[in-house]
Design a protein around this nucleic acid. Structure first.
Length: 455
DNA sequence: GTTGAGCGTT
């Protein structure tokens, strides 16, 4: 029987190449796919009948033909997180040209040994190497063994390319019929730079879509996520696969669809973004990082403005800010020294009558003016709710005339002016030019936007 | 010959 081939392309715009099917069952081995497309985890194709994208069944490391057979169609690779970055792979080519120097620069000293947990007992170093070589050049593999030479079920791998490392860290791994977990080993923890992958994009206009941003920023490197707060808040977050790319863009102005946006660093999330683990938890093993490392742990005020997820969206904002009390404090980390009579918690806004409370809608992403010491008085009995944007985190100080102000836009603007960053760590000390009225009234308003909660 | 959360020289 002769070997049959199917056409597989990395992306819709790429030229397909032919991959051989298994003669016995007409399947495509995942390993065959990965041999040509390192990191690919599956296939998809466009159904000619209804134009919908269909996924190919993957079972036992084999990709199975659709019901009607492979049928001469072109199949496209699926990569992890494909849904949010459809042209991510394309950006590799761009990176070759655009920022190769940045990439190679950041690759130095960035690769580290990675621990591979959950290996099958039978998996040896050769198998491990063969598996990981589908992602990129492997400098070292080890399988740890006991005195008798029996595998301990874990090992180490080191890549030469940092992109490869990130990619490997970002997905699950099926090796010798077991799902394995690849992580930065504890021993290396803290030694790894924790450069944020996410940037804050200020001065966005409402017509800048996710696609616009992705399309624009993928010129610089692989974009793994674009987050635009809804409703519109004049900024967004763009996450790159490579933190160095993100870093390199910070401080720059960019023109996207005629809009001048400003890129700056997004404050790191409280527990850091270690491991670049894009939400792919392995197996059922949960990794408990509580209390270990995470430099931000103690400052982890997760003020979610009335408790994210509590009580639904409240998007019409009709009622007042009911959840501010307990909801706030309960969001603090248990070991947070502030969690008692803390700041940022309830305190301020009892009796807040904001009518259409613009700010209390699961505010995930705004720069934390409070933490930066820029917010206004706590407004006990704040009656500012006359328009569309009460609870102005800049409060009376900045907005002395009580003009309607959208805190998001203010935040974006401040960020753009460098005020946010400049003030970071400054607390509410009255220093120099930042000694503004709003700085002197440090009561806490839980509705201030928070840039620190977004990574 | 069994095991299945972890963290590397021996």
């Amino acid at each position: 029987m002769s070997v049959e081939y199917i056409q597989v392309a990395e992306d819709y715009s790429d030229e397909p190449i032919e991959l051989p099917l298994e003669p016995d069952d007409n399947t495509l081995l995942l390993s065959t796919l990965q041999g040509q497309f390192p990191g690919a985890t599956g296939l998809k194709y466009r159904n000619p009948e209804n134009k919908a994208i269909r996924g190919i069944r993957l079972n036992d490391l084999k990709l199975h033909a659709p019901g009607c057979g492979w049928d001469g169609l072109v199949y496209y690779c699926v990569f992890p997180k494909d849904s949010v970055s459809e042209n991510k792979r394309k950006s590799d080519d761009v990176m070759e040209n655009v920022s190769k120097s940045k990439v190679s620069k950041c690759q130095t000293n960035k690769c580290t040994d990675l621990i591979v947990l959950g290996l099958a007992w039978k998996t040896n170093e050769q198998a491990l190497r063969e598996y990981f070589e589908t992602f990129g050049e492997v400098l070292m593999v080890q399988v740890k063994k006991d005195a008798k030479g029996q595998s301990k079920g874990f090992g180490f791998v080191r890549f030469s390319n940092y992109e490869t490392q990130l990619r490997v860290l970002g997905q699950r791994h099926h090796i010798d019929s077991r799902w394995c977990e690849v992580k930065v080993p504890n021993s290396k923890e803290g030694q790894i730079q924790q450069v944020p992958c996410k940037v804050f994009v200020g001065r966005c206009t409402e017509d800048l879509t996710q696609e616009d941003l992705k399309e624009y920023f993928c010129k610089f490197g692989e974009v793994t996520d674009v987050f635009i707060p809804r409703p519109f808040r004049a900024f967004s977050f763009v996450t790159f696969l490579d933190p160095e790319i993100a870093q390199s863009l910070c401080g720059e102005d960019h023109i996207i669809k005629g809009v001048s946006v400003h890129v700056s660093n997004a404050a790191p999330k409280a527990d850091g973004n270690r491991n670049q683990n894009y939400g792919n938890s392995m197996n059922s093993r949960s990794q408990n990082y509580a209390g270990n490392s995470a430099p931000y742990n103690n400052s982890n005020y997760r003020n979610e403005f009335g408790g994210r997820g509590s009580g639904g969206g409240n998007s019409n904002g009709s009622s007042s800010n009911m959840s501010s009390g307990g909801g706030q404090n309960s969001n603090f980390m248990p070991n947070n020294p502030n969690s008692g009579g803390n700041a940022w918690g309830s305190g301020g806004n009892n009796g807040n009558n904001s009518s259409s409370n613009n700010n209390n809608r699961g505010n995930l992403d705004m720069p934390n003016l409070q933490a930066l010491g820029i917010n206004s008085g706590g407004n006990p009995g704040n009656q500012s709710g006359s328009g569309g944007n009460m609870n102005n985190p800049l409060g009376v100080g900045l907005n002395a005339l009580n003009l309607p102000m959208n805190p998001a836009i203010v935040a974006a603007a401040l960020n753009q002016w460098g005020l946010l960053n400049g003030m970071q760590g400054q607390g509410n000390n009255d220093q120099g030019p930042n000694n503004q009225p709003w700085n002197q009234q440090q009561q806490r308003n839980q509705n201030a936007p928070d840039k620190t909660n977004f990574m």
